[in-house]
Amino acid sequence: MEPNFYRPTVQASLEQDSAEILANFKEIIKSGSGTRVKLVNYYKGLPISYPATLVEVSGQVLELDVHPQQAVALGLSGRTCIKCGAFSHTLLADVKDADVRRMTASLHNFSYVDLMVEQRASLRLELDPPCEAEITVSGRKVAARALDVSLGGFSALTPQPTQLGKGDEVLLKVMMPNLLHNTVAPLEVPATVVDVAGCDAGELCRFSISSDSQAEGVLSRFIFQRQVDLIRELKEMSG
Protein backbone atom coordinates (compact mmCIF):
# COMPACT_ATOMS: atom_id res chain seq x y z
CA MET A 1 0.00 0.00 0.00
CA GLU A 2 1.75 3.14 -1.24
CA PRO A 3 1.84 6.12 1.19
CA ASN A 4 0.17 8.42 -1.36
CA PHE A 5 -2.83 6.05 -1.46
CA TYR A 6 -4.01 7.12 2.01
CA ARG A 7 -3.89 9.97 4.52
CA PRO A 8 -3.46 9.29 8.28
CA THR A 9 -6.39 10.44 10.42
CA VAL A 10 -5.17 10.23 14.02
CA GLN A 11 -8.03 10.40 16.56
CA ALA A 12 -6.21 10.32 19.95
CA SER A 13 -2.66 9.04 19.35
CA LEU A 14 -1.26 6.26 17.21
CA GLU A 15 -0.87 4.01 20.25
CA GLN A 16 -4.35 4.77 21.65
CA ASP A 17 -5.99 4.42 18.24
CA SER A 18 -4.38 1.02 17.66
CA ALA A 19 -5.42 -0.22 21.11
CA GLU A 20 -9.00 1.03 20.56
CA ILE A 21 -9.23 -0.68 17.18
CA LEU A 22 -8.00 -3.99 18.58
CA ALA A 23 -10.41 -3.76 21.52
CA ASN A 24 -13.30 -3.14 19.14
CA PHE A 25 -12.32 -6.11 16.97
CA LYS A 26 -12.10 -8.30 20.07
CA GLU A 27 -15.62 -7.23 21.06
CA ILE A 28 -16.96 -7.84 17.56
CA ILE A 29 -15.53 -11.37 17.53
CA LYS A 30 -16.82 -12.06 21.04
CA SER A 31 -20.35 -10.95 20.13
CA GLY A 32 -20.29 -13.11 16.98
CA SER A 33 -21.98 -10.45 14.90
CA GLY A 34 -20.56 -8.84 11.78
CA THR A 35 -17.31 -10.79 11.69
CA ARG A 36 -16.96 -10.16 7.94
CA VAL A 37 -14.81 -7.22 6.84
CA LYS A 38 -13.38 -6.17 3.49
CA LEU A 39 -9.65 -5.85 2.85
CA VAL A 40 -8.33 -3.45 0.21
CA ASN A 41 -4.92 -3.68 -1.46
CA TYR A 42 -3.48 -2.33 -4.69
CA TYR A 43 -1.35 -4.61 -6.86
CA LYS A 44 0.54 -2.45 -9.36
CA GLY A 45 -2.40 -0.05 -9.16
CA LEU A 46 -5.12 -2.70 -9.54
CA PRO A 47 -7.51 -2.77 -6.55
CA ILE A 48 -7.67 -6.17 -4.86
CA SER A 49 -10.61 -6.32 -2.45
CA TYR A 50 -12.20 -9.47 -1.05
CA PRO A 51 -14.23 -10.17 2.11
CA ALA A 52 -12.27 -11.57 5.05
CA THR A 53 -13.43 -13.22 8.27
CA LEU A 54 -12.26 -12.08 11.72
CA VAL A 55 -10.98 -15.10 13.67
CA GLU A 56 -9.36 -13.87 16.89
CA VAL A 57 -7.30 -11.19 18.57
CA SER A 58 -4.11 -12.61 20.06
CA GLY A 59 -2.14 -10.03 22.01
CA GLN A 60 -1.65 -7.13 19.60
CA VAL A 61 -2.40 -9.19 16.50
CA LEU A 62 -5.65 -9.73 14.58
CA GLU A 63 -6.01 -13.10 12.84
CA LEU A 64 -8.22 -13.42 9.76
CA ASP A 65 -9.26 -15.93 7.12
CA VAL A 66 -8.66 -14.37 3.70
CA HIS A 67 -9.07 -15.01 -0.02
CA PRO A 68 -5.92 -16.57 -1.55
CA GLN A 69 -5.43 -13.68 -4.00
CA GLN A 70 -5.77 -11.21 -1.13
CA ALA A 71 -3.13 -13.22 0.76
CA VAL A 72 -0.75 -12.75 -2.19
CA ALA A 73 -1.44 -9.00 -2.26
CA LEU A 74 -0.97 -8.77 1.51
CA GLY A 75 2.40 -10.49 1.33
CA LEU A 76 3.59 -8.26 -1.51
CA SER A 77 2.34 -5.00 -0.03
CA GLY A 78 3.09 -5.44 3.67
CA ARG A 79 0.07 -3.27 4.49
CA THR A 80 -3.67 -3.35 3.93
CA CYS A 81 -6.75 -1.23 4.45
CA ILE A 82 -9.79 -2.61 6.24
CA LYS A 83 -13.39 -1.60 5.62
CA CYS A 84 -15.66 -2.41 8.56
CA GLY A 85 -19.07 -0.94 9.34
CA ALA A 86 -18.23 -0.82 13.05
CA PHE A 87 -15.69 1.96 12.39
CA SER A 88 -16.35 5.44 11.03
CA HIS A 89 -12.99 5.49 9.22
CA THR A 90 -11.06 3.14 6.98
CA LEU A 91 -8.39 1.26 8.93
CA LEU A 92 -4.76 0.73 7.97
CA ALA A 93 -2.75 -2.23 9.30
CA ASP A 94 0.70 -3.73 8.85
CA VAL A 95 0.87 -7.34 7.70
CA LYS A 96 2.64 -9.56 10.21
CA ASP A 97 2.09 -12.73 8.18
CA ALA A 98 0.12 -13.88 5.13
CA ASP A 99 -0.21 -17.57 4.22
CA VAL A 100 -1.56 -18.19 0.72
CA ARG A 101 -1.92 -21.96 1.15
CA ARG A 102 -3.75 -21.73 4.48
CA MET A 103 -5.64 -18.58 3.37
CA THR A 104 -4.86 -16.78 6.63
CA ALA A 105 -3.37 -13.43 7.58
CA SER A 106 -2.11 -11.74 10.75
CA LEU A 107 -2.36 -7.95 11.06
CA HIS A 108 -1.01 -5.47 13.63
CA ASN A 109 -0.17 -1.77 14.10
CA PHE A 110 -3.62 -0.38 13.34
CA SER A 111 -4.53 3.22 12.56
CA TYR A 112 -7.31 5.32 11.07
CA VAL A 113 -6.91 6.68 7.52
CA ASP A 114 -8.75 8.28 4.65
CA LEU A 115 -8.24 6.24 1.48
CA MET A 116 -7.21 8.96 -0.99
CA VAL A 117 -6.95 6.60 -3.95
CA GLU A 118 -10.74 6.19 -3.90
CA GLN A 119 -11.07 9.86 -4.87
CA ARG A 120 -9.35 9.31 -8.20
CA ALA A 121 -11.61 9.73 -11.22
CA SER A 122 -10.14 6.72 -13.03
CA LEU A 123 -8.05 3.63 -12.39
CA ARG A 124 -4.28 4.27 -12.45
CA LEU A 125 -2.09 1.28 -13.29
CA GLU A 126 1.67 0.93 -13.04
CA LEU A 127 3.64 0.56 -16.26
CA ASP A 128 5.95 -2.36 -15.62
CA PRO A 129 8.50 -1.91 -17.05
CA PRO A 130 8.26 1.90 -17.37
CA CYS A 131 7.70 3.19 -20.92
CA GLU A 132 10.05 5.48 -22.81
CA ALA A 133 8.55 8.97 -22.98
CA GLU A 134 9.35 12.50 -24.12
CA ILE A 135 8.04 15.85 -22.86
CA THR A 136 8.04 18.77 -25.29
CA VAL A 137 7.61 22.27 -23.89
CA SER A 138 8.34 25.50 -25.79
CA GLY A 139 10.36 23.57 -28.37
CA ARG A 140 12.50 21.95 -25.67
CA LYS A 141 12.46 18.16 -25.38
CA VAL A 142 12.95 16.31 -22.08
CA ALA A 143 13.52 12.56 -21.95
CA ALA A 144 11.40 10.70 -19.41
CA ARG A 145 10.01 7.33 -18.38
CA ALA A 146 6.26 6.93 -17.92
CA LEU A 147 5.59 5.11 -14.63
CA ASP A 148 1.80 4.80 -14.59
CA VAL A 149 -1.23 5.53 -16.73
CA SER A 150 -4.93 6.20 -16.44
CA LEU A 151 -7.56 7.37 -18.92
CA GLY A 152 -6.95 10.85 -17.53
CA GLY A 153 -3.20 11.11 -17.24
CA PHE A 154 0.34 9.84 -16.77
CA SER A 155 3.11 10.02 -14.20
CA ALA A 156 6.62 10.32 -15.62
CA LEU A 157 10.12 10.38 -14.16
CA THR A 158 12.82 12.60 -15.64
CA PRO A 159 16.54 12.14 -14.82
CA GLN A 160 17.17 15.91 -14.81
CA PRO A 161 15.20 19.00 -13.70
CA THR A 162 12.41 19.89 -16.14
CA GLN A 163 11.79 23.51 -15.13
CA LEU A 164 8.11 22.65 -15.36
CA GLY A 165 5.48 24.10 -13.05
CA LYS A 166 1.88 23.31 -12.21
CA GLY A 167 -0.42 24.34 -15.04
CA ASP A 168 2.22 24.27 -17.79
CA GLU A 169 1.01 22.94 -21.15
CA VAL A 170 3.21 20.34 -22.85
CA LEU A 171 3.14 17.69 -25.54
CA LEU A 172 3.64 14.24 -24.04
CA LYS A 173 4.81 11.32 -26.16
CA VAL A 174 4.74 7.84 -24.62
CA MET A 175 5.83 4.62 -26.33
CA MET A 176 2.73 2.60 -25.44
CA PRO A 177 2.85 -1.20 -25.58
CA ASN A 178 0.19 -3.20 -27.39
CA LEU A 179 -0.04 -6.13 -25.00
CA LEU A 180 -2.00 -8.35 -27.41
CA HIS A 181 0.39 -7.99 -30.33
CA ASN A 182 3.60 -7.44 -28.34
CA THR A 183 4.39 -4.22 -30.21
CA VAL A 184 5.11 -0.62 -29.20
CA ALA A 185 3.78 2.56 -30.82
CA PRO A 186 4.07 6.25 -29.93
CA LEU A 187 1.07 7.97 -28.35
CA GLU A 188 1.19 11.77 -28.49
CA VAL A 189 -1.25 13.80 -26.42
CA PRO A 190 -1.48 17.40 -25.15
CA ALA A 191 -0.95 17.41 -21.40
CA THR A 192 -1.12 19.76 -18.43
CA VAL A 193 1.30 19.57 -15.52
CA VAL A 194 -0.58 18.68 -12.33
CA ASP A 195 2.40 18.33 -9.99
CA VAL A 196 6.21 18.22 -10.03
CA ALA A 197 8.20 16.74 -7.15
CA GLY A 198 11.91 16.16 -6.75
CA CYS A 199 13.14 12.68 -5.85
CA ASP A 200 16.42 10.75 -5.67
CA ALA A 201 16.10 9.60 -9.29
CA GLY A 202 15.22 13.04 -10.71
CA GLU A 203 11.80 14.68 -10.96
CA LEU A 204 8.41 13.01 -10.78
CA CYS A 205 5.90 14.81 -12.98
CA ARG A 206 2.16 14.14 -13.01
CA PHE A 207 0.12 15.11 -16.06
CA SER A 208 -3.54 15.31 -16.95
CA ILE A 209 -4.09 14.67 -20.66
CA SER A 210 -6.46 15.83 -23.38
CA SER A 211 -7.03 12.81 -25.60
CA ASP A 212 -9.09 12.39 -28.75
CA SER A 213 -11.14 9.30 -29.56
CA GLN A 214 -8.15 7.52 -31.11
CA ALA A 215 -5.94 8.11 -28.05
CA GLU A 216 -8.79 7.11 -25.72
CA GLY A 217 -9.15 3.87 -27.67
CA VAL A 218 -5.45 3.09 -27.31
CA LEU A 219 -5.49 3.81 -23.58
CA SER A 220 -8.75 1.91 -22.94
CA ARG A 221 -7.47 -1.20 -24.71
CA PHE A 222 -4.15 -1.07 -22.87
CA ILE A 223 -5.76 -0.57 -19.43
CA PHE A 224 -8.24 -3.41 -20.02
CA GLN A 225 -5.56 -5.85 -21.13
CA ARG A 226 -3.24 -4.73 -18.32
CA GLN A 227 -5.96 -5.55 -15.79
CA VAL A 228 -6.42 -8.99 -17.36
CA ASP A 229 -2.67 -9.63 -17.13
CA LEU A 230 -2.45 -8.48 -13.50
CA ILE A 231 -5.37 -10.70 -12.48
CA ARG A 232 -3.67 -13.63 -14.22
CA GLU A 233 -0.43 -12.90 -12.32
CA LEU A 234 -2.27 -12.94 -8.99
CA LYS A 235 -4.05 -16.21 -9.83
CA GLU A 236 -0.77 -17.84 -10.75
CA MET A 237 0.87 -16.69 -7.49
CA SER A 238 -2.11 -17.86 -5.42
CA GLY A 239 -1.90 -21.35 -6.90
Rank of each mutant, 00 (worst) to 15 (best):
S111H: 04
S155K: 10
A23P: 01
M176K: 06
M176R: 07
A98L: 06
F110V: 01
N178Y: 04
L91S: 00
A197T: 12
D17I: 01
F110E: 00
G45I: 12
L164V: 12
L115D: 03
E56K: 09
G45Y: 00
P161K: 13
K26Q: 03
D114A: 05
A197S: 14
A144Q: 01
F154D: 03
S58N: 09
L219Y: 10
V170Y: 06
V66M: 02
L22W: 01
D65F: 04
D94T: 03
R206G: 12
H181E: 15
L179S: 11
I231C: 03
P68R: 13
A19R: 02
V196C: 06
Q227G: 14
I135H: 01
V194S: 06
P186E: 12
C84A: 14
Y42T: 05
P68T: 06
E27W: 02
S31A: 11
A73F: 15
A143H: 10
T162Q: 08
T158H: 09
H67V: 07
G34N: 01
V142K: 03
L164A: 09
I28C: 06
L204V: 09
D200F: 02
V170I: 15
L125C: 08
D168N: 12
T136R: 10
V189N: 02
G202F: 05
G45L: 06
N24Q: 13
C199S: 10
T158F: 03
I135Q: 07
L171G: 11
S150K: 06
K173G: 05
L157C: 10
K38V: 08
Y43G: 04
G59F: 10
R79V: 06
R120T: 12
Q214V: 14
Y43R: 03
D168W: 05
R101G: 08
F224A: 15
Q70T: 15
V55G: 02
Q227E: 15
A133M: 07
I48E: 04
K30C: 05
F224C: 12
V10S: 02
D148K: 09
V228M: 05
G34E: 02
P129R: 02
D65K: 13
V57F: 01
D195M: 11
H67N: 15
A52D: 05
C199G: 04
V37C: 07
P161R: 15
G165H: 12
V117Q: 14
D229R: 13
P129N: 04
L54P: 11
P129W: 05
K96W: 00
S220E: 12
L74P: 04
N41Q: 02
A201L: 11
E132V: 05
D128W: 05
I135W: 00
G34K: 01
L76N: 07
T53L: 13
E15D: 15
E236Q: 13
D17G: 07
L115T: 00
S138D: 12
I48L: 09
A215F: 08
K96L: 08
A133R: 08
T80C: 03
G152Y: 06
S31Q: 04
L234N: 01
Q160S: 13
L171W: 08
S18F: 00
D195A: 12
S111G: 14
G152I: 11
D94K: 01
G165Q: 15
L147T: 09
S238F: 04
S77A: 15
C84E: 01
G139D: 05
E233K: 08
V95K: 00
V196G: 03
C131R: 06
T183I: 07
F207G: 03
G75T: 14
A156W: 11
V10P: 01
M103D: 14
R79E: 14
L164E: 05
